Simulated scan of single mutants.
Amino acid sequence: MATEIVAFLLTISGWILVSSTLPTDYWKVSSVDGTVITTATFWSNLWKTCVTDSTGVSNCKDFPSMLALDAYIQVCRGLMIASVCLGFFGAIFALVGMKCTKIGGSETTKARLTVLSGFHFILSGLCCMTACSIYAHRITTEFFDPLFVAQKFELGAALFIGWAGSVLCVLGGLIFCLSLSEGFSMRRVA
């Protein structure tokens, strides 16, 4: 039971980080220091692109059309939304399937729900990790390309939060799946 509680805490912490990554502003960041007085920070996420001046005033522009977006942004949006949804259903299955809860039916049914929640969390973590990695790959490819003449960006904080959350989801999901195999090996011995 303690293993399941640890797994649940890991997965819920990871899911919260993954969920907070989706609306976070700084997926990519670039600073321009023109003079001592004027500084502008350009940043972008999956939904909009913004510029913040030295006084702290931000001017944002939402992406105008979903069909006009670059394919990598559409893929990242889909993967992140899938990640949040998979984590939500994984949390519900985990709450019902854990040994310390009184709902869920027989021990076999609860064990199956626990494994199902583990798979949901593993898939949630992999979706988020893939989305953050695709986005980061695009940023680093443009940054190190000597022929790319447009403004170059660097990795933002949201990507690191997403990677950390996805690792926690995958680890917790694996612990959920392994806790079931321990239960089966104990039943065979007894």
Rank of each mutant, 00 (worst) to 15 (best):
R112T: 13
G97L: 06
V149Y: 14
W43N: 14
S106F: 11
S166L: 01
D53A: 01
C169E: 15
R112Q: 08
I139G: 10
R112D: 01
A68S: 06
I139E: 04
F42G: 04
G78V: 06
F148S: 03
F143C: 02
F148Y: 10
I81P: 02
F153V: 09
L159D: 02
F42D: 05
V84S: 12
F42N: 12
F121D: 00
V170M: 13
S106G: 12
S106I: 08
G97F: 10
A68L: 04
F121H: 03
T52P: 00
S124W: 14
L155N: 13
F88V: 13
L116A: 09
S65Y: 05
V167G: 03
L95C: 05
T141K: 05
F89I: 14
A136E: 10
K102P: 02
C76N: 09
L171W: 07
S124V: 03
G87E: 01
A158R: 13
C85V: 08
C132F: 15
I103A: 12
T114E: 00
F148D: 01
G165T: 14
W43Q: 15
W43A: 10
L69R: 15
A136V: 14
V51C: 02
T141W: 11
I103E: 12
I161A: 01
L69K: 14
G104V: 13
V57Y: 09
T101S: 06
C85W: 07
F148C: 04
G125E: 02
F42S: 11
D53T: 08
L174N: 07
K110I: 12
F160T: 03
R138A: 06
A158M: 10
D145A: 03
V167F: 08
T114N: 06
M98H: 10
T39S: 15
F93D: 00
Y72F: 12
V75A: 14
F121Q: 02
T109P: 06
G172C: 09
L174V: 15
G104F: 11
I103K: 15
L86I: 10
L168W: 11
D70L: 07
F148M: 03
L180T: 07
E154A: 06
G97M: 07
A94P: 00
A131G: 05
D70E: 03
F148K: 14
M98W: 14
A91M: 05
A91K: 03
N45S: 09
G90R: 13
C60M: 09
A136C: 08
F119G: 05
K152A: 09
I139R: 09
K110D: 07
P146C: 00
C100W: 11
V75Q: 09
G125C: 05
